[in-house]
């Protein structure tokens, strides 16, 4: 990058002469180094999956979760800096609780995403802070049915039927595009999600990883929960088998 040494990349509150904010772009780089996270909006629900790279064999299985719960009906998967993800989740919880306090009903996901987007954006306009090194996938089932959104480090957000962030996002997106995503059942989506995560992990085969998955929808009564053990094992076994066939 030509930005190095110019001084325009030292602060989020300074544009470069060609109109870029390098600190925000660097934040996006932080996400690219992180394990892939995907989300599928399917018939009757949303499925989230994360390729959690395990940097040490000494870690307890299940440690450092990257899928978190924002409200009963809202789940969140992050890619990027783990600690930033936790901070974002806490903010999400506060926003969801505040919506409930004011309106006495579970919040539509769009509201939460909107507020978190504004929150992320605020960290791109001050010299005293750094932007979130985070791409956030939010999934929910609200009054309008299943919802899926992604918030980028810049604060920009879009709704998706299938979303992928992190290192393997390109391949994951290609795979997601092949699916008839609106036709999948939640159970099928769990299998596909597991397969995609295992597939994109092929590029970083030497690294250990844990597949972390959760869902919200008809299968869970509209509540965000981890995938049941048996289904998770079944999906992982199928995913492994599909990789071997692929090879």
């Amino acid at each position: 990058m030509t930005s190095i040494g110019t001084g325009y990349d030292l602060s989020a509150s300074t544009y470069s002469p060609d109109g870029r904010i390098f600190q925000v772009e660097y934040a996006a780089k932080a996400v690219e180094n992180s394990g892939t996270a995907i989300g599928l909006r399917v018939k009757g629900g949303v499925v989230l999956a994360v390729e959690k790279l395990v940097h040490s064999k000494l870690l307890v299985p299940g440690a450092n979760r990257r899928i978190q719960t924002i409200d009963k009906h809202i789940g969140m998967a992050t890619s990027g800096l783990l600690a930033d993800g936790r901070h974002m989740a806490n903010r999400g919880r506060d926003e969801a609780a505040s919506y409930r306090e004011v309106y006495n009903s579970p919040s539509p996901l769009k509201i939460i995403v909107d507020r978190l987007g504004l929150y992320a954006q605020a960290y791109t306009v001050y010299s005293s802070v750094r932007p979130f090194g985070l791409s956030t996938i939010l999934g929910a089932v609200d009054k309008d049915g299943p919802q899926l959104y992604v918030i980028e480090p810049s604060g920009v957000f879009f709704g998706y039927r299938g979303a992928a962030v992190g290192k393997g996002r390109q391949l994951a997106k290609t795979e997601l595009e092949k699916l008839q995503i609106g036709e999948l059942t939640m159970r099928q989506a769990v299998k596909e999600a597991a397969r995609i995560i295992y597939l994109v992990h092929e590029d970083a085969k030497e690294k250990e990883f844990e597949l972390e998955m959760s869902w919200i929808g008809d299968e869970t009564g509209g509540v965000h929960l981890p995938i049941p053990k048996e289904l998770q094992q079944e999906a992982e076994a199928a995913a492994k088998a599909s990789i071997e066939v692929f090879e």
């Binding site: 978190q68 719960t69 924002i70 409200d71 009963k72 919880r93 609780a97 409930r100 306090e101």
Partner: peptide
Amino acid sequence: QKLLEELVIEEFTEQ
């Protein structure tokens, strides 16, 4: 009831 709803959600999100 409101207090309990808040408490239960707080605990649930801990997972």
